Simulated scan of single mutants.
Amino acid sequence: MQRAEPEKVLVIACGMIAREILAVKERNGLDHLDLTCLPAEFHYHPDRIPPALDAAIRKARGEGYRHIVVGYADCGTGGMLDRVCEKHGVERIAGPHCFAFYQGNAAFEAVADGDMLSFYMTDFLCRQFDAFFMKPLGLDRHPELIKDFFGNYEKVVYLAQTDDPALEKVAVDAARMLGLAYEKRFTGYGDLEPALVTAAAEHTRS
C-alpha cells in the first residue's frame, strides 16, 4: 500500500506569531506546511485583519492552495474574522486572541477575570518592545505619559514561549519602568502547536 503523501497546507497568520509557527513546523517535521503573514501591526488595528485576510485567501487560491489554515484567533475583530473564514471554508485557531491560545484556552478562561488588569507580553513583544510600545507611544521621549497609558494596569504578565533570559530581562525591565508588578508564565506554544499539527495531518493523499 502506498504511503499517504501530505498535500501543501498554507497558514495565513499574524506576523506576531510567525517565528513560533516556524518553530512548530520544524520540530514536528511539517515540511508540507507553508507560511505567509499579514503585518504584525494589525494586532493594534483589528479592523484591518478581515479584509486583508480575505484578500490573502483569494490570492492563495489563485496560487493553487486548496488547504488553508488561518493563524489568528478572533483577535478583536468581533466575529468579523469568522465571517471571512466561513465565506472561504477555512478554519482559524480557536480562542479570543493569541494570549489565550498561548496559555491554552481552557487555562486562560480560568484566569481571565483575575487578569483583567494585566498587561500581557510575549516573546515577540519582548523582542519588539521599543518598536511596538516605546516609540509609537512616545514613551522614549515623554516618560510622563506612562501613567496615562498604563495607569490602570496592575501587573505585567510575561507569557514566555521560550526560556530566554534576554527576553525575560526585557519583560522585567518593562514592568519596573511601568511601575507594575511582574509575573512570568512559561506557556511554550500552548494550543498553537496541536492546532497546527492537527490541521497539517488532516490533509493527506494516497
Rank of each mutant, 00 (worst) to 15 (best):
C85D: 04
P136K: 12
A166M: 12
D164I: 00
R19M: 12
Y158M: 09
E193Q: 13
F149L: 10
K184C: 09
Y158R: 14
V11N: 01
D115A: 05
A171W: 10
C85V: 08
G114L: 14
Q2M: 05
G64C: 09
H32M: 07
D164Q: 04
Y65H: 07
L180V: 04
A55V: 08
A200F: 14
F129R: 07
E20Q: 14
T122R: 09
A160F: 15
K184E: 06
G179P: 08
K8G: 01
E154V: 07
C85G: 10
L196Q: 07
A23S: 13
R27P: 01
E183R: 12
Y72I: 07
A13G: 13
F129H: 15
H88F: 14
I49R: 02
I68R: 04
M116S: 06
M177C: 00
L81P: 15
I49S: 03
K135I: 13
Y44G: 14
L196A: 01
G188L: 08
E202R: 14
S118G: 10
Y72S: 08
F186K: 13
L178A: 01
M116P: 00
I146S: 00
T36G: 00
K155P: 00
K147E: 13
F132M: 12
L38E: 08
N28C: 10
M80L: 11
C98T: 12
D74A: 02
V157C: 13
V24C: 10
